[in-house]
């Protein structure tokens, strides 16, 4: 609405109208996209607190006026919630810890290599993501069945590491690349060994990037269903529990479970954004 500057050129009025129509079109498009994006999440939250009479009728209410906590009470009192929640939490956390131990050193080494070698190594890591997960999950599941580790947390952590390591390492390579080598050289001039330099200088400086990688890894493990489906029968993770509920319960209960699966993700993503803003590096280079 800003370029309404008066002009004597003929035809200026028409161009202005075209622009205005374009703006209205853009606004409508933006609104439509926003509505489609938000609708499923909106209905999930609303359904979880909705009176049954508002949904179970020929015309379910878009904007319900009667609310209830009965679905939340039912799910929070469900015997299956806490074991599943704990399993997911432990698996995601242990997976993240081991993934960092394995991929921090590896990613650091990759980040210090010649660009061509670096590109090749990262690409070769990503090629492993091309394999169908069911082809990996099947032998792994059969192996763990034989070893008596079926449904164990160790088994699922082992499987989740297959999924998360390439992505975790890839984020970390990016994080380490932003740490200038001058700092390492300065440390080595001061007589520190390379391992000591990595531990005392590089890793602390890369802390924000490492946190982002950790949180991303945690989310991948928390969300994962293919390996978890192959490796669980009686003791599901939270997403698998949700899958089992879908066929058996009504939309309101499913929505409540779905909200519970999502809440930790929201918290963790919020934490990640705080880390993303932190910029320790600038200070280190200046000082």
């Amino acid at each position: 609405m800003s370029e309404a500057a008066p002009t004597s050129r003929p035809g200026a009025r028409r161009i202005n109208w075209g622009k205005r129509a374009g703006r209205v079109g853009l606004a409508l498009l933006v609104l439509l996209i926003v509505a489609v994006t938000m609708a499923p999440v909106y209905f999930m939250v609303v359904l979880s607190v909705m009176e049954p009479s508002e949904f179970f009728r020929p015309d379910p209410a878009y904007f319900p006026t009667k609310f209830t906590t009965q679905w939340w009470e039912r799910v929070l009192n469900s015997e299956t919630l806490y074991p599943a929640f704990t399993k997911s939490l432990v698996v995601a956390t242990v997976t993240t810890a081991i993934a960092l131990v394995i991929s921090v050193p590896g990613a650091y080494a990759i980040s210090r290599m010649a660009p061509k070698v670096k590109y090749f190594l990262i690409l070769s890591l990503f090629f492993t993501r091309m394999y169908p997960e069911i082809g990996i999950a099947l032998p792994v599941a059969v192996f763990f069945l034989r070893m008596g580790l079926y449904e164990s947390i160790i088994g699922l952590v082992f499987a989740h590491l297959i999924l998360v390591l390439p992505i975790c390492a890839w984020i970390l390579v990016g994080a380490f690349e932003t740490i200038p080598r001058d700092l390492e050289e300065a440390a080595s001039v001061d007589g520190a060994s390379r391992l000591r330099t990595l531990w005392r200088v590089v890793i602390p400086l890369a802390a924000p990037g490492i946190s982002v990688a950790a949180i991303f890894t945690w989310l991948l493990s928390w969300d994962e269903v293919t390996y978890a489906r192959f490796l669980t029968l009686l003791h599901p993770t939270l997403p698998i529990q949700l899958l089992d509920i879908i066929g058996r319960s009504g939309p309101t209960v499913v929505a409540t479970w779905a909200t519970i699966v999502t809440i930790p993700v929201v918290i963790v993503t919020y934490l990640m954004q705080r880390w993303l803003r932190a910029d320790y590096l600038a200070g280190a280079v200046k000082g």
Partner: peptide
């Protein structure tokens, strides 16, 4: 960017209400 933060199973089960 909201859908990127929603777990896949949740995204799929949300589609059921719709």
């Amino acid at each position: 960017l909201l859908p990127l933060g929603i777990p896949v199973v949740v995204a799929a089960s949300n589609m059921r209400y719709i």
